[in-house]
Amino acid sequence: MGSRIGRRALLGVYAALVLVPLLVMLAGSFKSTSDLFSNPFSLPEEWRFSNYSEVLGSGDLSTAFTNSAVVSTCSVTLTLLLGSLAAYGVARIPGWPGWAVYGFLVLGMSVPAQANMIPQFVLFDVLGLTDSLTGLVLINIVSTLPVAVFILAGFMRALPREIYEAAALDGVGPWRTYRSITLPLSLPSVAATAIFLLVIHWNELLYPLLFINDPEKRTLPLALLNFQGEFLTNYPLLFTGVVVASLPLVVGYIFLQRFFIAGMTAGSVKE
């Protein structure tokens, strides 16, 4: 009996540790600085929406929001397209050549971004792809292709071979097999990968920090980081920025929890 109460207490404490800071932040985004400092845990004395109009009105964050939306959407879509094509190829090439191509692509998962970012920066600079959203999309694609291929190929290899034999007997070519058979059957893993990629690309900081100087091209995490310098201890304003930047994913998470959890786990299970 004692252990059951202990279990509940522990779970309760941990839930509070997770939720209280987030709720303090959410309420704080509607407070004045003095209200936040004197009553951090209570609801706002008076609900102020001025933080939001200030943060969004100055333009910086709304521009960043649009940039993030564009870059993330394109990065996720293109990584999925290229990744699923590659995964299909390596799953269907028989014998060692298939595994060799797969191994080469997946090897990239063990290269930390800091290891090749310098030559990448030089290359992108030469090609005029710095200070460009296209450049961000491109670097997002290549940096996450390995993990996308890893998840998708794992799934596609597990599909029963008989499907392919039947398709070949019916004279269905490789391309149509990919589009009308493999891809629809792989939908669960495609969805999981899509969410995993979305979380990574939406929150990506390193590459924008390296590649972007122009304030008009900033993405949300970079804009937030700059906020910090500007509004040193104006926490309500910082919190408003955090709420704006996190809202799309959190809302998505509330409705699609299961997919988010499956996606983020698929991405972390690499062996």
């Binding site: 979380v199 994913l249 959190v250």
Partner: peptide, 19 residues
Amino acid sequence: VFFLPTILSSVSVAFVWKF
């Protein structure tokens, strides 16, 4: 609930913890 922080950006988490 326990999984929720995972989907936030590191910069967001940093600001919450700064406070």
